[in-house]
């Protein structure tokens, strides 16, 4: 699987990343699931532990407020527990879990809002061109900049500004490090559609964020001789 951050030698491999798709070599999830289904239900706590953060992130980027996001996350984990016998292992457990989370968030939003969700008709307009923010040069914003609350906030805000169709693809592919195929499976769309939406999502993020982040480099520290 070609992962954006790893395709470029100047990016430190895996720096600060703990996406949902990070492998946990010591875990045999199929065996854990079999044990849970055979009655050792308490193992479910361990099964879901690596995904607590990812499920919450997905929920928050849809619900946009913490209490609702937490509700959605809890509900998703409960549903996954109740439906565990339906999990057939064709996909990874993480892919299955994320589909449940997305469905939970979508149905919660539908219940909350009288405004209709985006219809598939709007999706067909995906051919339109998105121009990125034009820059002459780019000074890398180091990940230490994320220590600053305002930088985190503008990133979360930009993700929130994407329409749900683009947001879910960006979250799965770029935040959770799903492959194109896994993203397609989780969203029940084709890999081609994933690529088109991902491209647009990334361009929209660049367009919104590049002008804001351009000056986000931490100020140089000067030592004073006195």
């Amino acid at each position: 699987m070609a992962i954006t951050r790893r395709a470029h030698p100047e990016t430190p491999e895996g720096a600060g990343l703990t996406g949902m798709n990070v492998e946990h070599p010591d875990r045999d999830e199929a065996q854990m699931i079999a044990a849970i289904l055979a009655g050792d239900t308490r193992q479910y706590h361990e099964l879901i532990r690596p995904y607590e953060r990812s499920v919450y992130k997905m929920a928050l980027s849809f619900m946009k407020n913490e209490p609702d996001a937490e509700d959605v996350a809890q509900e998703a984990f409960l549903k996954a527990f109740r439906k565990l016998a339906d999990f057939r292992g064709q996909a990874k457990f993480s892919t299955w879990l994320i589909s449940i989370t997305l469905n939970e968030a979508r149905s919660r939003l539908r219940r909350q809002s009288t405004v209709p969700m985006e219809s598939l008709d709007q999706v067909t307009g995906e051919g339109g061109h998105i121009s990125p923010a034009l820059l002459r040069d780019w000074r890398e914003v180091p990940s230490e900049a994320l220590e600053r609350k305002e930088i985190r906030a503008i990133l979360v805000e930009a993700i929130g500004h994407l329409s749900p169709l683009y947001r879910e693809v960006l979250l799965l592919r770029d935040v959770e490090e799903f492959s194109i195929e896994e993203t397609a499976t989780a969203l029940t769309i084709t890999p081609g559609t994933v690529k088109v939406r991902l491209h647009r999502a990334r361009m929209m993020m660049q367009k919104e964020l590049a002008p804001k982040l351009k000056n986000a480099n931490p100020r140089r520290r000067w030592f004073q001789w006195s």
Partner: peptide, 23 residues
């Protein structure tokens, strides 16, 4: 080149675990 670098940088930042804080 600047568009590519900024897009890549934004993808890396977006993926960082610190972006979303857990309650």
């Amino acid at each position: 080149s600047a568009i590519l670098d900024s897009t890549r940088n934004i993808v890396v930042l977006t993926a960082d675990d610190r972006v979303f804080e857990l309650p």
